[in-house]
Design a protein around this nucleic acid. Structure first.
Lengths: 245, 245
DNA sequence: TAGTGGTCTAGACCACGTG
DNA sequence: ACGTGGTCTAGACCACTAT
């Protein structure tokens, strides 16, 4: 054969990297690649698929295939020492958070038996109950994060922390009023590809990984008071951790 | 048509999730799916490709397609408060680090002009020089991480920190001897799909994202003394951050 | 309605690993 | 040598989107 899908993809990738094809631009479509390179449609398609699974391009049905745009949201965990205490506080990826705001939808609050993976994290027996808070975060109307929090039911039942509206300061402020203010937390994270249902709920396009985070919050006495599991659209987030050695 | 690639993939995914097909097991191959479902080879192939790009399966040429195994390495940043200060310190993902050790290869050390993205992070002028340390980390002979560190040449030139072998305690210990001990750092991270060259250097199979980390280390006075860029095989790492509020 | 992507077929030939 | 995955063709038909 003369031209392979891989070679076509390499050419397009190079034009993307050189900014000849800028984020948001339309790529040559399947019919165009068939004409230009004299290959079968499936071959042209495979070439574009490579870029899509690399996260470089997104397909829009009936319209075309486009160079993906990356507009990170910055999520900062920790004390933001770099900005308060330390010097420049420059960062590699420019974050554009102008005017964009996280909104919450699909909030569900209820009491459930503790899931078996969560029980040891909270130091609870297997048959304990937890207050569960599920929600989805949107930015500009697009979903970017799923989150589920688990709190020991014995601690927060019938308190404001178990109500849908957590009020000013959020959940952690309510825990503080119960004498359970989190003094610190541990986050464990992992990146992977989403399964189809996650892909659906986050409106992910192909080639977008997710970041799975499990945060355990502790009081100053070392008591675990909250486990929050999060699933983030990796195409949208930059995560920042400020840490003292 | 009677059976679609998607439906075949859904069936296999379900069998994987239910552990009927366990990690490491061989999946039905292309010929088997053709026979079982009466579809064309390309259709069977597309079904398996879905699982592969989801990171659920890996292909081995001449052998078969297998359910992927996830054996995380735990990377902990911060003070490990959960273990020292706080309670249980349980974690969601079981880490198996038994006997496996990080080894370093392909170490390159030299002086270069500072890259333009790095200069502002180190607070250096555009024409400054940096000592650059590039290396690759392996676990059990398999590459898992690429790393490149940049240090202001004016600070570390002709010091042990600019030599290939950093000696006991590593680079940060040598910085300490220069009165530049890092007191804390900021890590910015992002998950994405690798490009082909990254895929090559990390021996990644399809469907594996990478985690890109940029760490800036600061002295107690707020001076940036090191920028380290890392690229991790996300199929291998679990990242842990311990943070105080 | 015309153009785009989405899916499938039935065949071909190749490259590689295992037995 | 055989069976696995890897790539390609030339056609078909469908579904969605823009105009």
């Amino acid at each position: 054969m003369s031209v392979t899908a891989r070679q076509i993809a390499d050419g397009l990738r190079e034009r993307i990297r050189s900014r000849e094809l800028a984020p948001g631009d339309r790529l040559p479509g399947e019919p165009a690649l068939v004409r230009e390179h004299g290959v079968a449609k499936e071959t042209a398609r495979r070439a574009l698929s490579m870029l899509v699974t690399e996260g470089l391009a997104v397909r829009r049905r009936g319209s075309g295939t486009y160079v993906r745009e990356f507009r990170p949201i910055r999520r900062t965990a920790g004390r933001r020492l770099s900005r308060d205490v330390w010097g420049a506080g420059q960062s590699i990826w420019a974050a554009e958070v102008r005017g964009r705001e996280l909104t919450v939808t699909d909030l569900e609050v209820g009491e459930e038996p503790v899931p078996e993976e969560v029980a040891p994290l909270l130091g609870l027996p297997d048959e304990a109950a937890v207050v569960v808070r599920r929600r989805r975060y949107l930015v500009d109307g697009e979903p970017v994060q799923l989150a589920t929090s688990y709190l020991p039911a014995d601690l927060v039942r019938d308190s404001p922390a178990a109500r849908a509206e957590t009020g000013p300061g959020g959940l952690y402020a309510r825990l503080g009023e119960l004498g359970l203010e989190p003094a610190g937390f541990t986050e464990e994270l992992r990146a992977r590809m989403p399964d189809p249902s996650e892909s659906d709920r986050l409106h992910l396009s192909e080639g977008t990984p997710v970041v799975e985070i499990c945060r355990v919050a502790y009081t100053a006495e070392g008591r675990a008071v909250d486990v929050t599991w999060m699933l983030l659209d990796a195409g949208v987030y930059t995560l920042v951790y400020d840490v003292t050695s």
